[in-house]
């Protein structure tokens, strides 16, 4: 028996969501009275996962897996789950985790619940709380199969430190790699992605045109944030589609979300609601976003944002 967690890495280094997923897996393992095994593909220093509660790490290094391959990755996690006799498999809400999850569910004949926001409410029956209706509600759902797959929502549990000693074990299962081949990858390596960012700075139609995004980018760079935008902004081609956030765009679950010149339409809010702290800058005090935000300034973005950049630079130099 064990709780298995798939840990994602980028360029050999574990992502923060991997640390969070291990912390969460440890929480479940404690409830079930068992241990956490992590499976890591092409990652370095894998024993560091002990610091988040893993007792064992199954380690796989394989050049042919350098590019993500959902079928291959799913088959590795499935083999690991069988080997470890896992009752629960923990994944995250990253795009790649959500690609693997349904394949894995069929391979293990396991019930799968995504977007889980807290530890199971009970172990038997195994009941989890997860967001549904694009964050407008939660469902308390029972997973009835012997093996259970949960996809943890980002930033829902947090990274928790433990001082478990993790043993490592080389793992070389039979891999089914399917018939999907990567031709080319187009990835900006110097930019913080919306998925990984702790802070997201987002601009809407209130910014009037693409030529005004300089201050948005500068604000993002001062904060070490990713940039995002509302749907009409990407529809009009002011910004790339990859920055479109909301119900029909990317979800945002950052620590801080700063919305500038965005009205706060229901479809926009649905996608960003699970961010912890929301700030709005808008010159219309009636903008619906003020009802959803934690902090707000009513004012002209073209005045406020440059001031905010200056203030933050000052703050950063004092708090460096």
């Amino acid at each position: 028996m064990s709780v298995l967690v798939y840990t994602e890495s980028d360029g050999g280094k574990f992502k923060k969501i991997a640390q969070e997923a291990v912390s969460y897996a440890k929480g479940i393992a404690d409830m079930l009275g068992t241990n956490v095994t992590a499976v890591a593909i092409n990652a370095e220093n894998v024993s560091e996962l002990g610091a988040f509660g893993a007792s064992k790490v199954l380690e796989l290094s394989n050049d042919s897996l350098k590019n993500f391959n959902a079928e291959a990755y799913a088959s590795i996690v499935a083999e690991a789950a069988k080997k470890e006799n896992a009752q629960v498999v923990v994944l995250t809400s990253s795009i790649n985790s959500k690609f693997i999850a349904p394949l894995l569910a069929v391979k293990l004949d396991a019930g799968y619940v995504p977007n889980v926001v807290s530890l199971p409410e009970s172990a038997s029956p195994f009941k989890v709380k997860h967001s549904v209706f694009s964050n407008k509600a939660f469902s308390h759902t029972e997973i009835k199969t012997d093996t259970k797959i949960v996809g943890l929502a980002k930033n829902a549990f947090g990274v928790k430190e433990h001082n478990t000693t993790a043993t490592t074990e080389a793992f070389s299962p039979e891999i089914s790699s399917g018939n999907v081949e990567v031709v080319s990858v187009d990835k900006a390596t110097d930019k913080i992605t919306i998925a990984d960012a702790e802070i997201v700075v987002s601009g809407g139609r209130g910014l009037k045109g693409p030529e005004n995004w300089g201050m948005i980018e500068e604000l993002a760079s001062v904060l070490g944030a990713a940039t995002a935008c509302s749907k009409p902004v990407s529809d009009m081609g002011w910004r790339p589609h990859s920055e479109h956030v909301g119900q029909t765009g990317k979800p945002v679950a950052s620590n801080l979300y700063i919305a500038i010149g965005i009205s706060g339409a229901i479809q926009h809010l649905a996608g960003i609601n699970s961010s912890k702290v929301k700030v709005v800058i808008n010159n219309d005090p009636e903008a619906p976003f003020f009802k959803a935000a934690d902090y707000g300034i009513v004012g002209d973005a073209f005045e406020i944002v440059p001031q905010l950049i200056e203030k933050l630079k000052e703050f950063k130099s004092q708090n460096a």
Binding site: F138, I297, E310, K311
Partner: peptide, 24 residues
């Protein structure tokens, strides 16, 4: 059915926004 939704819940109502009038 591998999973069964037992009950729904709506998020707790949000507190009011804190408005400030300067960036500091």
């Amino acid at each position: 059915n591998e999973t069964a939704s037992i009950q729904f819940e709506k998020p707790a109502p949000k507190g009011a926004v804190k408005l400030v009038d300067n960036v500091e």
